[in-house]
Design a protein around this nucleic acid. Structure first.
Ligand SMILES: [Mn+2]
Ligand SMILES: [Mn+2]
Ligand SMILES: [Mn+2]
Ligand SMILES: [Mn+2]
Lengths: 218, 218
DNA sequence: TAATTTTGTTAGATTAATCTAACTTTATAT
DNA sequence: ATATAAAGTTAGATTAATCTAACAAAATTA
């Protein structure tokens, strides 16, 4: 049984991993706001538990066991977020902080019940996939809105960053998952987009467009 | 902000308190399965935080602040149990363990939402009162079924012990809160009761009768 | 390539929460 | 009232998780 602290390291290793599954001590340290020597010593501990491949001065990698453990925590996190939004009436900007704590509850039945009541959802309120109970996850490959072109019609599928501030901004603009966006034009000097949503014209900054994950329609 | 560990000590102090609000180090030690020297040192720590009145060799007492803190944790515990039963479909025998963990979540909105969705309940699934958001609680004074007499008709209001085993036993006997019980007779040699419930005769051992809290009907 | 910066490790200290062994105080029993 | 038992405390050790200071390795820059 892993401690709450170990679980947070595992989750961070999982979500920070690059295409090769690698993470630097430095990046982990920054992400968790924990000093590097502490990270190193925790990595040795997780390596002793066969959850991390650790070699001095080499990038960190989760073992298969470590990946499964991490995915199962992520599963609890995302099921919780979905439950809070769908069954308890929270806004998508309110749930991450709560899920950050609830994900550490050791009670399989609790999360199985959420899953059942939600009718086995595949995605969380931010469009991220929910790993299955074996820790398997199928990543969708969406486009960033910022990579689309004038004339494209796209549908919002997920948000790439889910800070309270960004989500609250999207609330004010009435942008939510499933929304269709038509790209009217792109400003050349700042890459902001003039888009049509719900028959209304809006301007979206490049920063916003980078954080919106979409899929082409038609 | 109190740690999870401190919270569990506070809750234990609150629930173990006798009529004078006193608890012995020894009782706390046994209840929490923590050795006495550890309890003593934690009491000094809680005293330093003004949550416990501590004097060497004297019984422990929560301060007013300590009582409020404890009641607020108990509130979260009981709201959680009620939510699990009423909104998620758990049995009353399944919820204590889960609530034991969820009660430590620091997210006032989470529990406010439960409270609201449950329509501000006064009692948990075991008939225990739920403290209000100021940590105030109104204790009902029920009778133990074992203190009632032949010919009495009573209504089950709460259970005095809520172990999984006892609650599962009550499930098998179809005994739940609100049930009316008529006392047909009491065996003199073992104090077991012959009772009528739902037009059926059952025999309840003294142990069971001691654990059922009731109110006289009529 | 050499200097500098960034990244990572080692060593040692700190805090929270726990333990055991030994001792003291208080309560109970003879 | 004395002896014994029970309850509570002190002292010192241990483990998990963190930190800072100092140093070493690797990467970047000049
Ligand atoms: Mn989240
Ligand atoms: Mn977390
Ligand atoms: Mn309970
Ligand atoms: Mn608890």
């Amino acid at each position: 049984m892993n401690s709450l602290v170990e679980e947070n390291y595992l989750k961070a290793l999982y979500t920070l991993a690059n295409a090769n599954g690698e993470v630097n001590v430095n990046d982990l340290s920054i992400h968790l706001s924990i000093k590097k020597p502490t990270v190193t010593s925790m990595m040795k501990k997780l390596a002793a538990k066969s959850l991390v491949h650790y070699e001095s001065y080499k990038p960190l990698r989760l073992t298969e066991d470590g990946k499964r453990e991490a995915a199962l925590i992520l599963r609890k996190h995302r099921l919780t977020e979905m439950f809070l939004v769908e069954k308890m009436g929270f806004g998508w900007e309110e749930v991450h902080e709560i899920a950050e704590q609830v994900e550490h509850v050791k009670a399989p039945k609790f999360f199985e019940k959420m899953d059942e009541l939600l009718n086995y959802p595949s995605f969380d309120p931010h469009g991220s996939p929910i790993p299955n109970s074996n820790g398997e996850i199928k990543e969708e490959k969406y486009l960033h809105l910022s990579d689309c072109a004038t004339g494209d019609t796209v549908k919002v599928k997920a948000v790439a960053h889910s800070s309270n501030e960004f989500l609250t901004f999207l609330n004010r603009r009435e942008i939510k998952l499933g929304l269709e966006i038509y790209i009217e034009s792109i400003e050349s000097f700042d890459a902001s987009m003039r888009v049509k949503v719900n028959d209304e014209i809006q301007s979206l900054s490049h920063t916003v467009c980078e954080r919106l994950l979409v899929e082409k329609v038609s």
